[in-house]
Amino acid sequence: MRMLAIASLAVIAATSAQAAPAAGAGGLAAHRAVYDLSLKDASERSGISGMVGRMVYEFAGSACEGYTVSFRFVTEISTGEDSRLTDQQTTTFEDIRKGTFRFVTRSFVDQKLDHEVRGSAEAKENGLALALEQPDKLSLDIAPARFPTEHMIELIGKAREGERFYESRIYDGSDEGDKAMITTTILGEKQPVEKTDTEAKRAGELADDAYWPVSMSYFEEAAEGDGLPVYSIAFKLYENGVTRDLTMDYGDFVLQGELAQLDMYEPEPCVEQ
């Protein structure tokens, strides 16, 4: 379940893209999005009979000062005989100009700390240099990869250019923080909102805006051939980077994420030194 929450963070981070015109050219939208989670499907092998929860994602910062993400993913999981409460809390900081990324993730089960992953990464000439502090101290070098905010910008840029399919490698501290993942992304043509789309009304000023349908799959970097993705997601992406109508597929079960609340913040000024 730790991987489930981290996977969701990776996907949401990758879709909080370039901001509305009010944020200025090249800016990023500062916002807080709340999603209600429900179980859409589950195989018998999963052992899951029910799941409900809430996901909160908050993005802030600027190109000058760097970008901060605060993410919380809480679920109550029923297995028929009992239930448990999982709580994933992640904070990241990324400085695109310096090519640095820091993260800490704490996982709780029934309000008790179950696992903590903490570390940083720095872009070097030939790849990424990782420095992990928790659960064990470890330094290693991996192949070049994009950090989450870089990936955000790449995704929106591809959508605006009309590109329909592309691959990328991303490092976001997922799992134990010691590897990157390969992503494949399919971008649909922009779609007008349907009048029967009740979720759109919760997007405030974006309620009547068109969106891109997007689907992304994440693969282990060492996977060969036509291996199955570790997880995948489909969602609706607005021009300013807000996402809604999430479908998160983890293989044995599928979660639905519906936008419940959206708060947009004033962008932080960025004055070049």
Rank of each mutant, 00 (worst) to 15 (best):
A260G: 04
S139N: 13
A260P: 08
S38T: 12
Y35C: 05
E161G: 05
G162L: 03
K158H: 02
I233G: 10
R160H: 15
A222C: 03
G157P: 05
T183L: 11
V214K: 02
V242G: 02
L128E: 00
D82G: 13
F235E: 10
D263Y: 12
W212Y: 10
M181N: 09
V74R: 06
L130C: 02
P269H: 00
A145S: 01
A129K: 08
R102L: 09
G188C: 08
W212N: 07
A207M: 03
A10M: 12
D178S: 13
T198D: 14
S49I: 15
L132P: 12
D209Y: 09
A29R: 15
E176Y: 14
R45H: 15
G173S: 04
T105R: 03
I153D: 00
S174F: 08
Q18G: 11
R202C: 11
D136V: 11
A33Q: 08
M51A: 01
S139K: 12
H115I: 08
S174G: 10
F219V: 01
V34A: 02
M1Q: 12
C64P: 01
E122I: 05
R54Y: 07
Q261D: 15
A22V: 08
P269Y: 02
A123P: 09
R97Y: 02
E161M: 06
K190Q: 10
L128C: 01
G61W: 04
L130F: 00
I186A: 15
L155Y: 02
G177N: 01
F101R: 05
L37M: 06
P267T: 06
K236R: 03
T247H: 06
Y171L: 07
F253C: 02
G162V: 04
S62E: 01
D197L: 07
T86N: 08
G26V: 09
T183R: 11
Y166W: 14
D41F: 04
L155V: 01
A22L: 08
L259P: 02
Y238G: 08
L237Q: 07
S217E: 04
Y265K: 05
Q89M: 00
K124T: 07
D36A: 09
S215Y: 01
E81D: 05
V109F: 10
Y67C: 02
Y211K: 05
F59I: 13
A223H: 08
Y265D: 01
T75H: 12
A210S: 03
E122D: 11
